[in-house]
């Protein structure tokens, strides 16, 4: 997120750097959805782009690209983060979960099922990020209050649902009788 006041100036000679594609010369090893892997990336590469373009995991979405919308949410070492505001280089040695890692062999994740059952999905673009934000919350706080749920998804924008059904879906999972 950036504030409204931005006074940073652009050095005059940066355009030369704009024309050169950075070489994919950095090898980054991390655990993705339970499996260790190493990827060669450019230093400038963002985690969202490595996931989508390098690894073909397009469940992670990119919308605003500047940290306002939360569609790129991933879980890093158990915590919801923005994969578009993170260099892939920064996740070396860490554990990353994306929406692709949630479903089991035969069943989808209970949060995914609750979103379907509750009708918490309309266009669906925010849904992977919402579900990951919800998972990070429930992993840490299995019985959240409505306010906890609202705070947990406060960085995830939905322009369709008005949030009511999303909050209901997360509450339903949390308070389901096991």
């Amino acid at each position: 997120m950036t504030s409204d006041v931005q006074l940073a100036t652009r050095p005059a000679d940066v355009s030369a750097r704009d024309r050169v594609d950075a070489a994919k010369n950095l090898v980054v090893s991390f655990v993705l959805n339970g499996k260790p892997l190493s990827v060669a990336v450019a230093p400038t590469e963002l985690l969202a782009d490595t996931l989508r373009e390098g690894l073909g995991l397009t469940g992670t979405k990119v919308a605003c690209g500047t940290g306002d919308c939360g569609t790129c949410t991933a879980i890093l070492d158990g915590e919801a983060v923005r994969s578009c505001l993170m260099l892939t280089a920064m996740v070396a040695g860490k554990t990353v979960e994306t929406i692709e890692g949630l479903a089991g062999e035969s069943d989808i994740h209970p949060i995914q099922q609750a979103f379907i059952d509750t009708g918490a999905v309309q266009c669906g673009y925010c849904t992977p990020g919402m579900i990951l934000a919800a998972k990070a919350l429930l992993d840490e706080n299995p019985k959240p209050s409505a306010d906890d749920i609202k705070e947990a998804i406060s960085g995830n924008l939905c322009r369709c649902t008005g949030y009511t059904k999303i909050i209901e879906a997360i509450d339903k999972v949390a308070n389901a009788v096991a």
Partner: peptide, 17 residues
């Protein structure tokens, strides 16, 4: 580069280089 939550969006917007 610390958390990157200001620096990276600022760089993406090309306000810092």
């Amino acid at each position: 580069l610390a958390g990157g939550q200001t620096l990276l969006p600022t760089m993406k917007q090309r306000l810092a280089a």
